[in-house]
Simulated assay, not measured.
Amino acid sequence: MDMRLEVVVVPVTDVDRAKDFYQALGWREDADVATGEDFRVVQMTPPGSACSVIFGTGVTSDAPGSAHGLHLVVDDIEAARTELVERGAKVGEVFHDAGGVFHHAGTGGRVPGPDPERTSYGSFASFDDPDGNAWFLQEITTRLPGR
């Protein structure tokens, strides 16, 4: 049976501020529905993604800014970083991990610049939304077998 990740809930403080931020990044608004002052759900989808994010009022009890390690896969890490910066995101510099497998938690092990061999899965850049939910861009040009 196929199981596809469809939605990730992102906890935010200010729904309209979050919506403005993600729209500025070029994400599509799929829904903005309120059934009262205590419940509102906004669904946004990054360009080309089959998975969306949901945030709002009354949709999660998680602390705003507590979503970390969210990854957006891109074909060209430098072009994606440039586009997000032009759209107003504060994206860190491109880096690769000293271990060469996957980035460490926090900022330890980060080596400036893309992976020297531009190995697929090996180059990253990071940014936060206004609440501190932490996103990564990850460059993938060739998928591992079975993907």
Results as ranks from 00 to 15, higher is better:
Thr142Gln: 12
Glu6Ala: 08
Asp20Gly: 11
Pro114Val: 11
Phe21Leu: 09
Asp14Tyr: 10
Ser123Cys: 14
Gly36Thr: 06
Arg4Asn: 06
Phe55Val: 02
Asp62Gly: 11
Asp14Lys: 11
Ile77Tyr: 00
Thr13Glu: 08
Thr82Lys: 00
Lys19Val: 07
Gly146Ser: 11
Trp27Asn: 02
Val7Pro: 07
Ala89Lys: 00
Val111Lys: 12
Leu72Ile: 11
Thr141Gly: 02
Ala98Trp: 13
Glu117Pro: 13
Phe136Ile: 04
Pro145Phe: 03
Val12Asn: 05
Glu139Pro: 08
Val74Gln: 05
Gly132Tyr: 09
Gly58Ile: 08
Arg4Gln: 05
Ala79Glu: 14
Leu137Arg: 03
Phe124Tyr: 15
Glu6Arg: 13
Pro64Val: 07
Ser123Gln: 04
Met44Glu: 01
Ala67Tyr: 10
Ser61Cys: 15
Gly106Leu: 14
Ser52Met: 10
Ala50Ile: 07
Ala98Tyr: 11
Pro112Glu: 04
Val41Ala: 09
Val85Gly: 01
Asp75Ile: 02
Arg110Pro: 15
Ile77Ala: 00
Asp20Ile: 06
Phe124Lys: 12
Gly48Pro: 12
Val33Lys: 01
Val91Ile: 09
Lys90His: 06
Ser66Gly: 03
Ala80Gln: 01
Glu78Gln: 10
Asp129Thr: 03
Asp38Leu: 14
Val12Phe: 01
Glu29Thr: 03
Asp97Cys: 08
Asp131Asn: 14
Tyr22Asn: 13
Glu86Tyr: 04
Ala105Gln: 10
Leu25His: 00
Ala105Arg: 10
Ala18Gln: 01
Ala67Thr: 14
Ala134Asn: 15
Val8Cys: 07
His96Thr: 07
Arg87Gln: 05
Ser49Phe: 05
Asp75Val: 11
Val91Asn: 11
Gly146Met: 03
Gly36Cys: 04
Ala80Arg: 05
Glu37Val: 01
